[in-house]
Design a protein around this nucleic acid. Structure first.
Length: 659
DNA sequence: CACATTGTGAGCCG
DNA sequence: CGGCTCACAATGTGCG
């Protein structure tokens, strides 16, 4: 799957999805064939398994690694037929390696068997043609390629269904598909009608099937999808088949088809009479009767649990199925799902749907299960928090879990380790912004807020503490760590827009200051001073922070000592933080600007607004004595340049306030 | 919060 | 069929 997605990324247009799917499935174990494993799939064994096994190739169970390499795709390149002959021999040898004579006999037998096999003679010819066709290093002219592929087609069209399940011959057909016209691709699809299930469950055929989907026309895709409909549950439980289904779902199915695919997991009724249920949602389906809901949820859970056990927790189709499941599940079933997922919980959270499942589970379950979930996420803290969807699950933990000590103890170490990256990271900073300001619409879009509110509502039944208390407890633990991180890395954080914003929320914040212990209040002061000092120096220097708009906004907020509430169109001053506002303004003027630079700061359009802020903050205050004294001396030297809006505003204020 | 910008997906035409 | 344009949504930025 990983490899398939990669291929699509290279060749296809839908690179976005391909990439996503790589991300989610990256951790999944690769396909490893293990003959003993194939059987306890489902009561009914896929007929195709029998078919492919008895007909040919003992070697099918060998050289899987090589096959994997094929899939990982250097464009059906390297590796090749030569060794396939060798493999077969090797296989025979293994069964009987005593006597050379017996061995020879076997070899002869094998050759004969090969020749007598349906289309055996053609296979040899086709292979030699393919050898020419697949060469990659020396590009062959279009016309010649055309001719070669025509020849291959002529030879193979009558026995194509026998070719496609075999290790090497299937690759011949893959190449053929790649270099064929769309008409021929449709012919190939037609020739394989009725065999797609076989293909999907074949270790070799599945790659061809994926290629057909990729290069095929809309009609071809529809043909294949139609044929696989009804077998999806069986396929999901199949080692090879599951990958095909996932690829189909992620890359090729339309929205409607996706819905239909999931509906099959509800039960046979929905798999067989699919047209009767167009557009049916799971909630509607479960409304009709209690029995129905029970059956649907049982079936869904069956498919989910089988797939998770197979190690397919990262599949998107499974996330979608789980999402529907949690929408209808009762409390007991929710716990069953957590039980099934236990260790694999981290593989869920990186997709939108998986994250929704994770959040819902977190919100609905009890303290004991939450503890389990926290444990299983612990080793993925960094990836969890930096991922757009993972971070939502983490935030859900923050606002649901009563045991804030556990949360801080579990995640604290790796958070401290990565804190300076988190604070300037688009998604990584979100959990911490939540701790600072709650679910502010400035940082969370309406949809996300809506989702969170849903989980908050759900958690009301399972969480005991008042909602705000959890945030404040966590804030008390994390706030000193924020300050420490900023103190140690302020220049790096200040150079980033997102970092400035974070610092602003951290410092211009009554709640934060209130939870600080005495020694941490000193830390707070140190942070404020460090930031002020970065503005010292010649403002005509290009890299002075005054030319960085976000740093200036932070500075302004510190001088004003409050936030602008745009909703109510008014300024909200801080009440609990003593060292900001007037105090800060005075100190900043005395220590950073002073009389020698005041005029320069006013005449520079990047810094003039800072002076406006000082002016307003210090007006009528005893702390402003020095500032206004100096100001009067130079106010006649202010340049009235139209491009310096701050300076003009300042002059207007002088008139209005009468300084 | 409101505006502008950017990237994405769906529909259309050559 | 493939390339294009258009419209929308999500995201970033600026503002009193």
């Amino acid at each position: 799957m990983v490899s398939m997605a990669k291929r699509n990324k290279q060749n296809g247009k839908r690179s976005f999805e391909a990439e996503k799917s790589t991300l989610q499935t990256a951790k999944k174990p690769r396909i490893s064939v293990d003959s003993s494993d194939e059987e306890y799939d489902e009561p009914m064994k896929a007929p195709s398994d029998l078919g492919s096994e008895d007909e040919d190739e003992l070697d099918e169970l060998d050289d899987v690694d090589e096959q994997e390499a094929d899939g990982s795709d250097q464009e059906e390149g390297e590796g090749g037929l030569e060794d396939s002959e060798g493999e077969e021999e090797g296989d025979v040898k293994e069964q009987d390696n005593d006597t050379e004579g017996k061995h020879k006999e076997q070899r002869k037998l094998l050759r004969e068997r090969k020749q007598s096999r349906k289309g055996g003679t053609q296979v040899q010819q086709i292979k030699s043609l393919w050898e020419k066709l697949r060469v990659k290093n020396a590009p062959i002219p279009r016309a010649e390629r055309q001719e070669l592929s025509d020849q291959v087609w002529e030879l193979s069209k009558d026995c194509i269904s026998d070719l496609v399940l075999k290790h090497d011959a299937s690759r011949v057909v893959q190449t053929l598909v790649k270099y064929s016209s769309k008409e021929r691709r449709e012919q190939i699809v037609d020739a394989l009608k009725g065999k797609f299930y076989l293909l999907a469950t074949s270790a070799y055929g599945k790659y061809l099937l994926v290629k057909l989907l990729h290069y095929g026309s809309r009609k071809s895709r529809q043909t294949i999808i139609d044929e696989l409909h009804g077998c999806l549950r069986k396929l999901m439980r199949h080692r090879e088949g599951a990958y095909v289904v996932e690829d189909l779902y992620v890359l090729y199915a339309s929205n409607e088809q996706k819905q239909q695919m999931i509906r099959e997991f509800w039960g046979s009724e929905y798999a067989v009479f699919r047209d009767d249920h167009q557009g049916l949602t799971i909630e509607k389906a479960c409304e009709s009767s209690v029995e129905k809901r029970t059956i649907i949820s049982k079936n869904l859970l069956g498919t989910i649990s089988a797939s998770v056990e197979k190690g397919s927790t990262g599949f998107q189709i499974l996330h979608a199925a789980m999402r529907q499941f949690v929408h209808i599940a009762n409390d007991k079933e929710i716990e069953e799902l957590i039980e099934i997922l236990h260790e694999s919980f981290a593989e869920l959270v990186h997709t939108p749907e998986g994250s929704e499942v994770a959040c819902t589970l977190i919100a609905r379950t009890n303290a004991k299960e939450r503890k389990q979930i926290i444990r299983s996420l612990r080793d993925h803290t960094e990836a969890l928090i930096k991922n757009e969807y993972g971070t939502a699950a983490f935030i859900t933990l923050l606002f649901c879990v009563d045991d804030t000590v556990l949360v801080h103890k579990t995640f604290g170490p790796s958070i401290r380790e990565n804190m300076k990256e988190f604070l300037v990271h688009k998604y990584g900073r979100r959990p911490f912004l939540y701790l600072l300001v709650g679910l502010d619409s400035k940082y969370f879009n309406p949809h996300v807020i809506g989702e969170f509110n849903k989980y908050i509502k759900l958690s009301e039944a399972t969480s005991k503490k008042p909602f705000l208390q959890r945030r404040h407890e966590l804030l008390g633990k994390f706030a000193p760590e924020f300050l420490q991180t900023v103190l140690e890395n302020y220049s790096g954080i200040l150079s980033e827009n997102l970092g400035c914003q974070f610092i602003s929320e951290l410092l211009v914040n009554d709640e934060v200051y209130e939870v600080l212990k005495e020694k941490d209040q000193q830390l707070f002061q140190d942070v404020v001073d460090s930031i002020a000092i970065t503005f010292k120096g010649d403002i005509t220097e290009e890299d002075h922070p005054i030319h960085h708009p976000f740093s200036v906004r932070l500075l302004k907020a510190l001088i004003q000592g409050g936030k602008w509430n745009n909703k109510e169109k008014r300024f909200e001053p801080l009440e609990k933080v003593p060292c900001l506002g007037v105090k800060f303004a005075q100190k900043f003027y005395d220590e950073i600007i002073d009389s020698s630079n005041l005029l320069d700061w006013i005449n520079n359009p990047d810094s003039s607004f800072t002076i406006v802020a000082l002016f307003e903050s210090l007006l009528g205050k005893k702390e402003g004595k020095q500032f206004f004294g100096d100001f009067k001396k130079i106010k006649n030297k202010i340049q009235t340049d139209d491009s310096n809006k701050g300076a003009n505003l300042l002059l207007r204020l002088v008139k209005e306030k009468g300084v």
